[in-house]
C-alpha cells in the first residue's frame, strides 16, 4: 500500500516536470516491453567473463540457451555452467517487471553520446523487483541500461550495447553490475597454501560489487527449444 502511495507521488512529480515529452512514458515502456517479450527463446554463442573479487574464473566460452520466461543455461561442452541466480538473470526480460506497473518519466541522460530517456518502473505486485530504472534509446527502441532494485539481491545494473540484433532488442554486449555477498571458508577446512606472510600483502579489496560481461557472438531467435535442455544435471 505504501509502495502504491510512493508510486503515485513519483507519478505526480514527474508528470508535472516532463509533460512536454514526445511519447508518454507508459506508452514507451509498453512498446519496449513488447519488443523484449517478442523473443520467446534464443540460442547464442557467448563469451562470458565473471569479475567478482573472490572468484578467479577465466573467460568462459559456450552456448547460452534461453527460454522465456526464466529458463537459462550455459552449455560449455562438458564444462561447468556458472550463471547468476534466477533473480538477477542475464536477460533484460527478467529485469523488467512483467506485471502491472506504474511508469514515471525520470528525464533524459546521455549514454555514449546518445540522448536517452529515463523511465522509472514500479511494479504494483509483490514480485522480486521493487523498482526498475530504464535508460531508453528511443530511436532504436532499446534499453541501454537498467537499474533494478530487487527485494533480496540488492541492486543490479545492466549495460547493454546493440548491433546486429537491435531489431529484436537483443544486445551484442552486456555488462551486469551486481552486489556480491561476502565469501569465506574456514582455513582449517581448505588448508590453503598461500598463507605465507608476503602472500598476505596481496590486495584484499573488500569490493562488494561484481560484474559479469557477456559478448553474444550470434543468436538464433525463436526457433523453439525443448525444456529438457534446461533440466538440472
Amino acid at each position: 500500500m505504501i509502495r502504491m502511495y510512493c508510486a503515485y507521488i513519483f507519478l505526480l512529480l514527474n508528470g508535472l516536470a516532463f509533460q512536454s515529452s514526445a511519447t508518454e512514458a507508459p506508452e514507451l515502456f509498453e512498446v519496449l516491453r513488447n519488443k523484449v517479450l517478442s523473443v520467446h527463446d534464443y540460442t547464442a554463442k557467448v563469451k562470458m567473463k565473471i569479475n567478482v573479487n573472490y572468484m578467479r574464473i577465466p573467460q568462459l566460452a559456450g552456448v547460452l540457451y534461453y527460454k522465456s520466461p526464466d529458463k537459462m543455461k550455459l552449455e560449455r561442452n562438458g564444462g561447468l555452467s556458472i550463471l547468476p541466480k534466477k533473480n538477477i538473470n542475464l536477460t533484460l526480460r527478467n529485469l523488467i517487471p512483467s506485471g502491472d506497473v506504474l511508469v514515471i518519466d525520470a528525464g533524459a541522460d546521455t549514454i555514449e553520446g546518445k540522448t536517452v530517456r529515463i523511465l522509472k518502473v514500479v511494479p504494483t505486485d509483490d514480485g522480486a523487483i521493487v523498482l526498475t530504472k530504464i535508460w531508453v534509446d528511443e530511436a532504436r527502441m532499446v534499453a541501454m541500461r537498467t537499474e533494478t532494485t530487487t527485494r533480496d539481491e540488492g541492486t543490479v545494473i545492466m549495460d547493454l550495447r546493440y548491433d546486429k540484433y537491435v531489431s529484436f532488442a537483443l544486445p551484442d554486449n552486456v555488462t551486469i553490475h551486481m552486489d556480491i555477498k561476502e565469501y569465506k571458508l574456514p582455513k582449517g577446512v581448505t588448508m590453503d597454501y598461500n598463507d605465507l606472510p608476503d602472500a598476505k600483502n596481496i590486495k584484499k579489496v573488500k569490493n562488494k560489487k561484481g560484474t559479469i560481461q557477456i559478448s553474444y557472438l550470434n543468436y538464433e531467435i525463436n526457433k523453439g527449444i525443448s525444456d529438457s535442455i534446461f533440466e538440472k544435471e
Binding site: 562438458g78 564444462g79 561447468l80 555452467s81 550463471l83 541466480k85 539481491e153 538440472k232 544435471e233
Partner: peptide
C-alpha cells in the same frame, strides 16, 4: 547463494 553452478 548468488550463483547457479551446474554441470559435472
Amino acid at each position: 547463494e548468488q550463483f547457479d553452478i551446474r554441470g559435472n
